[in-house]
C-alpha cells in the first residue's frame, strides 16, 4: 500500500491516455506482416524475424553496433534477461 494517500489519489486522477483500437489494429497488422515475412524467410524492416535459435545472430549484430558507437533499443533489449540495459 502507498503511504501518501493524498498524492496517490491525485496521481490516480491523471486523465487517461487512450490506447485506441485504431492503434491496436495498426500494431497487429504490422505484427502479422512480420510473421508472414518470417514464414517466407524475408527480413522485415531490416531485421530478420528471429526465434530463440537466431538470437545469437542478433547479439552478434548488436556487438557490431556497440563497437561502432550505436546504441539502439533492439540491442539493449537483447540483454534484457540480465536487466542490464
Amino acid at each position: 500500500m502507498r503511504q501518501d494517500d493524498d498524492l496517490e489519489r491525485k496521481l490516480s486522477q491523471l486523465s487517461q491516455v487512450p490506447f485506441s483500437e485504431d492503434l491496436q489494429r495498426r500494431i497487429l497488422y504490422q505484427a502479422l506482416e512480420m510473421a508472414r515475412n518470417s514464414r517466407q524467410g524475408s527480413p522485415s524492416h531490416g531485421h530478420a524475424w528471429h526465434t530463440a535459435s537466431s538470437s545469437v545472430a542478433i547479439l552478434a549484430r548488436c556487438r557490431g553496433r556497440i563497437r561502432g558507437g550505436g546504441n539502439d533499443g533492439v540491442c539493449r533489449m537483447a540483454v534484457w534477461p540480465t536487466w542490464s540495459h
Partner: peptide
Amino acid sequence: NYHLAQDIAQDVFLRAFKNMDQY
C-alpha cells in the same frame, strides 16, 4: 505529446513481439 506517445507505444509492442521468444 499524444502522437509521439502513440508512435512509441507502437514501437514498444513491435519490439516486444520480435523478442518474445527470449522473454
